[in-house]
Design a protein around this nucleic acid. Sequence first.
RNA 1: GGGCGGGUAGCUCAGUUGGGAGAGCACUGGCUUUACAAGCCAGGGGUCACAGGUUCAAGCCCUGUUCCGCCUACCA
Length: 668
Amino acid sequence: MEKQQQSQLQSVYNPKIVEDHWYQFWLENDLFTARENKDKRKNYSIVMPPPNITGSLHIGHALNNTLQDIIIRWKRMQGYNVLWLPGTDHAGIATQNVVEREIAKEGKTRYDLGREEFTKRAWQWREKYGSNILNQLKKMGCSCDWSRLRFTLDEGLSKAVRKVFVTLYQEGLIYRSNYVINWCPRCKTALADIEVEQREENAKLYYVIYPLKESVEETIVVATTRPETMLGDTAIAVNPKDKRYEKYIGKIAILPLVGRELPIVADDYVDPEFGTGAVKITPAHDLNDFELGKRHKLEEINILNDDGTTNQNAGEYINMTALECRKKVLEDLKDKGYLKKVENYKHSIGHCYRCDTVIEPYLSKQWFVKIKDLAKPAIDAVESNETSFIPKRWSKVYFEWMYNIRDWCISRQLWWGHRIPVWYCKDCGEMMVRMEDPSECSKCHSKNIVQDKDVLDTWFSSALWPFSTLGWPEQTPDLEEFYPTSLLVTGFDIIFFWVARMMMMGIKFRGDIPFEKVFINPLIKDIEGKKMSKSKGNVIDPLLMIDQYGADALRMTLAALTIQANYIRLSKDKIETFRNFTNKIWNVSRFSLTHLEEFNPQEVKKENLEFSLFDEWILNQLNQTIKKVSDSLQNFKFSDAAMAIYEFTWNYFCDWYSKELILAKFIS
RNA sequence: GGGCGGGUAGCUCAGUUGGGAGAGCACUGGCUUUACAAGCCAGGGGUCACAGGUUCAAGCCCUGUUCCGCCUACCA
């Protein structure tokens, strides 16, 4: 109180004194906790997109959570039974990388520590830093139900993961297979297709001469962008309709430098127009080659170790990185006259979305989700508007991916995450997929069993978030009340990663959509339209902005900027505009208080009130503003809602109405 | 190759049944007006990318062109 009186003397609003005080007040009075819905009010629920435990609050989180908080508080005001459930994501690769960097400072690798000790360290890390971002959300003023805080590795959520895995396996929707997947040689793990970022780069197309076995005079020339993979070649393919190569089909070519005999096969996959119309086939290092190899029963020769270096199958080219190997292979090809020509060539190269390392297509045994059957009802749900995207156009993006969806590689060669609930008997080879850890082989009763070493893709557990957080697989009251959730607010960059998968899993395991509406919030760029990044030095740190201008100024800015576009541009200037707005409210409040010294609302009798023309006018404006704000929020037009409040407050209330008060005072 | 979004004031952008061209910032001029100079009052500024079409009427609907941005695809 003393503090408040002091600040009342100042003409400049000081949010620091106010904001922490009120957040404390809200917490102490337990105003964010969802209660048992005794009076059967309508429910309104949002599960927060869980930030990674490695993250600290960036401006994107600030926007995303501000918008959720606006909707949540508005619904609370409207009398709904509201739940906003917060939580964090264990973020497999990201967290593992962070912890690896930390132990690297001690000169150790995760292999020095061993799996058990390493995961212990990861847990310690999360205890220490994992809630940083949540405290930062409190600074933002987010009114989440902290009593229901969840983490993807919580016991309950882990149980949900197992339940889903085991069920899908039993239904034949999860399978294990040898397949060419995307391999990050730095993270040393498989990645799903969408975890690979394709970038077009300038490269070379190498034309390599392969002699025929029957007659050294005759040769066949193939074009390749990755000459080093020739060490794993097991065939050459041509199009069956290609007259040029008709006579070679069924003959044998000799792999230069290695001497391996390669059958020349005919396959429709080959485009006669491209390159020379003849393709080298490397089944272990190219997906198309792999599938072609299956059709022609070709040998699969894996020439890479898990760190991307060449293995013993590379013969004399062993223990080189892909680039070193390429260089050496090219030199030797040139020396021996096998390199016909080199052309400049632009094509896209895949990079790891976590560490940007070039991805190697790599043959290995992985777990997959058979996804087409799961996708179908998830497509139907959006087509029938059970779940609708706002803005509408994003449903097209969703459909595009869902119609062309491919099986999802869910195993990761990491240590941090949900371990795959599969055990193998080392004696009889039996495989057991279980909810509970088995103690012996169910077939031969041997105790000599081991659990699958891999963990699940982080997005596998995120896919269950809307119901695992509410207690599933237990049948809880929360699940009953709040599923399906009302709204999801997220960015378009994770429609495939997350939104689509929640749709599939929600429908599969709850028999109902996970959310009724999906509002796709814009992504924030700097004022020049560039992506914010630490290296460019153009980041706007929300915590710094709160410190300088106050959380309300920041939130008002973000709301006012939120139009239904893909991107919005933010600058400090824009935040200052709304800092001025908070200051305006402060000052008009000070002004009003001086006129209300003897005013006691308790003593006012409604029927005795007399309104002047100006009173009527401002009340009319107020009601129109309330309607405008409600209509705008109903349609997720955050900017319109914010600007309506801005206009009413500044133009109508301050510039007109309060001035009339002064005038009236002068006259009387 | 396929798809999507966008080109409105100097800058960032609104503009949802087709009829008024708008906001914030920036700019110009004037204000020690008893809540606020982070403010008040007044003001300048736009061939709504381009070309056609529909209409009494087009920033908005249709067709084409062009320029930017993004997503996606196994052409080695």
